[in-house]
Amino acid sequence: MKPVLAILLTSFVSLAAAYAELKVASLSTITTDIAKNVGGDKIDLFPLVKAGVDPHEFQPTPSDVKKIADASLVLFTGKHIEGYLTKLEETVGGKVKFIDTGATVKALPMAAEESGHGHSHGTGEDPHWWHSINNVKKATAVVRDAFIKADVANRTVYEKNAADYVAKLDELQAWATEKVAELPRAKRKLVTSHDAFQYLAKDYGFTVHPVKGISTSDEPSSKKVSELIVLIKEQGVKAVFAENIENPKVLSEITKETGAKLGGELYADGLGDKEATTYPDMVRYNLTTIVEGLK
């Protein structure tokens, strides 16, 4: 009788553990990485935006909507990058909890807004907050708290995992500080294809000069390109940077006009499938590319 009871009890516990799994959908490769680190094997994660997909252009398919409707939590980065969010929330109804992981991050204006001659994109805020490591630490706390609220039985696991991930981010921060210190402040001029690096610029003393606006679908004006050519020549900028998900045609033209080199491709909108499969890898790859390109 005792073995039978033991087997029944074990089965019940296993079944309970299986049902305890928290179903989490993620609308960004950045939130996917945070969720993997904080949730570990306690969550069932559906990454809907895959590596190398442009989040500005992403639209959920009907099967994505079904996965989201089955989830308990949906993680998104916010600041208006997910233009489909309101419709999605309306479609899946109120039983799914949407978590704005960028809610505690102070927004920075895009470059054109600062200079006062750009056209408006939504709120004029740069939504790419993950290019500041401190912001990812804040988002980790948001994800941890959301997981604990939805699955309090695994509180200690989420707390420990989040603390371990923040320790990794601290190491990354130290590495980044040391890497950027190799480049004199006078050389920290970042010419990129679209306006996605305001948070990185603020942390490390760069000035960003984007060819396009906030969205990858914006088209650069000939006036803007001419201004950039003058700036690159005047300030002796050694390199300009393309992005992994974009055609660097305009940047190639700029390099021909100025003699600056194409410094490499940056991961602006999220993780990739080569050098940047995790958030720390993405930061290391981007900063190494920028610093070595501008030296």
């Binding site: 500080t177 040391e178 950027v180 210190a181 004199p184 402040r185 006078a186 920290r188 003393g205």
Partner: peptide, 11 residues
């Protein structure tokens, strides 16, 4: 010191 300033690295 250029107009952009200089960064020192303390370890």
């Amino acid at each position: 010191v250029p107009p952009e300033g200089v960064d020192l690295l303390l370890k």
